[in-house]
Simulated assay, not measured.
Amino acid sequence: MKVTVRYFARYRSLVGKGEEEVELPEGATVMDLIEKIKEMHPVLRNEVFAEDDDLADVNVSRNGRYVRFDETLREGDVVAIFPPVSGG
């Protein structure tokens, strides 16, 4: 199945693009997608995911709603990857 991944803020700069399609097996989860993205873009593994399974610095939404990392993706989903937002 294919999902569209949109990168925002720092992630967009690191990856060098704002959006791409990613091919995943049926039944893949958000975490599976994160692992695939880390394979495709080692800079994310080095800069964002410095420690294994360190997901504290990433937010993920699917079709405009925040999701857990264990949620199953579906064909055509649009997944946004962005850093935590803070205000002041």
Results as ranks from 00 to 15, higher is better:
22 V>W: 00
16 G>C: 05
63 N>P: 04
12 R>A: 05
53 D>H: 12
64 G>V: 13
48 V>G: 03
45 R>S: 13
36 K>C: 02
45 R>M: 09
79 V>W: 01
37 I>P: 00
61 S>A: 15
81 I>K: 01
87 G>W: 05
88 G>A: 06
36 K>G: 02
42 P>C: 09
83 P>T: 01
61 S>F: 08
49 F>A: 04
85 V>H: 04
70 D>N: 14
37 I>G: 00
20 E>W: 10
16 G>T: 06
5 V>Q: 02
22 V>R: 01
55 L>R: 06
21 E>L: 14
62 R>M: 13
73 L>R: 06
22 V>K: 00
7 Y>G: 02
24 L>I: 07
87 G>Y: 03
62 R>S: 11
84 P>H: 14
26 E>I: 02
80 A>P: 02
66 Y>F: 13
61 S>M: 15
11 Y>R: 01
46 N>I: 03
26 E>H: 01
38 K>P: 00
81 I>W: 01
12 R>G: 01
25 P>R: 11
1 M>R: 11
45 R>A: 12
50 A>W: 00
57 D>I: 03
12 R>E: 03
1 M>Q: 12
26 E>S: 09
21 E>N: 09
88 G>H: 04
64 G>N: 06
63 N>Q: 14
35 E>A: 06
11 Y>M: 09
30 V>Q: 08
7 Y>N: 03
16 G>F: 07
23 E>T: 04
51 E>F: 10
51 E>N: 09
52 D>Q: 07
87 G>Q: 05
5 V>E: 03
26 E>T: 04
84 P>R: 12
84 P>F: 12
44 L>I: 12
32 D>L: 13
80 A>C: 12
79 V>F: 05
36 K>R: 14
7 Y>V: 03
39 E>D: 15
18 G>I: 07
3 V>K: 05
39 E>V: 06
25 P>Q: 15
28 A>F: 09
10 R>S: 08
47 E>P: 00
21 E>A: 15
63 N>K: 14
18 G>M: 08
81 I>D: 00
26 E>P: 03
64 G>H: 03
80 A>V: 02
70 D>L: 12
31 M>K: 13
87 G>T: 08
8 F>H: 02
52 D>M: 12
35 E>T: 01
20 E>L: 11
76 G>I: 09
30 V>D: 04
48 V>M: 10
20 E>I: 08
14 L>H: 07
62 R>V: 15
54 D>F: 01
56 A>K: 14
65 R>T: 13
80 A>G: 06
48 V>W: 04
48 V>Q: 03
48 V>T: 07
50 A>K: 08
43 V>L: 12
70 D>R: 11
59 N>F: 11
42 P>F: 09
66 Y>D: 09
59 N>R: 15
48 V>S: 05
66 Y>E: 10
1 M>G: 14
70 D>K: 12
78 V>W: 05
65 R>V: 15
46 N>Y: 10
77 D>W: 05
81 I>Y: 02
9 A>I: 02
35 E>C: 04
32 D>H: 11
87 G>F: 07
75 E>G: 15
61 S>G: 10
88 G>P: 04
82 F>H: 00
71 E>H: 14
67 V>P: 00
46 N>V: 05
17 K>L: 02
5 V>A: 10
9 A>P: 03
41 H>D: 10
12 R>Q: 07
44 L>M: 14
13 S>Q: 09
84 P>S: 13
15 V>F: 05
40 M>N: 11
21 E>R: 05
58 V>K: 08
43 V>N: 12
13 S>K: 01
77 D>E: 08
12 R>P: 00
75 E>W: 13
15 V>K: 00
